[in-house]
Amino acid sequence: MTTTNKAAFGLSARAIDTSEFATIYETSECLFEYDNGGSRTFVMTDSSGVDFLAIQDGADGNVVIVELADAHESAHHHAREVLNRVF
């Protein structure tokens, strides 16, 4: 799969495939999962305590990872900002 990084407000969004997401899911903590029917959104934290979002497409299972610049910023606020500008 081709990975494309797109930056907005010092954040990045990158596409990954299902196998890479499985590895990330196993090594991170899922704080919240939202199933909206056509896709799923995961609010996650890595081993350093940095929050990030994973948005999984229900059709093919591929995922967009939204990484935050600052661990103390709101994942929800940045998700809206990135998704409104990237997609």
Score class of each variant (00 low, 15 high):
M1I: 07
T2H: 04
T2F: 02
T3F: 00
T4A: 11
K6H: 10
A8T: 07
F9D: 13
F9A: 15
F9Y: 08
G10T: 06
G10K: 07
L11P: 01
S12M: 11
A13D: 04
A15D: 10
I16C: 05
T18R: 06
T18Y: 02
S19I: 06
S19Q: 14
S19M: 08
S19F: 04
S19V: 09
E20G: 00
F21M: 00
A22H: 02
T23Q: 07
I24F: 03
E26H: 06
S28W: 11
S28I: 05
E29Y: 11
E29C: 09
C30Y: 00
F32A: 11
F32W: 09
F32E: 15
E33M: 12
Y34H: 13
D35P: 06
D35H: 08
N36A: 08
G38D: 15
S39E: 15
R40S: 13
R40V: 14
T41K: 05
F42T: 03
F42H: 10
V43S: 10
V43H: 12
M44E: 05
D46K: 15
D46T: 13
S48M: 14
G49K: 13
D51G: 03
F52I: 00
A54K: 05
I55M: 01
I55T: 02
I55K: 05
Q56K: 15
Q56F: 00
D57C: 09
D57N: 15
G58A: 06
G58Q: 04
A59K: 12
D60T: 08
D60P: 03
N62G: 09
N62E: 15
V63F: 01
V64H: 01
I65T: 03
V66Q: 08
L68W: 02
A69W: 03
A69R: 11
D70S: 11
A71P: 07
E73I: 09
S74Q: 03
S74H: 02
A75F: 04
H76F: 09
H78Q: 05
H78E: 02
A79R: 14
A79I: 06
R80S: 02
R80A: 01
R80H: 08
E81C: 01
L83I: 10
N84S: 14
R85E: 15
R85F: 07
R85G: 04
V86I: 15
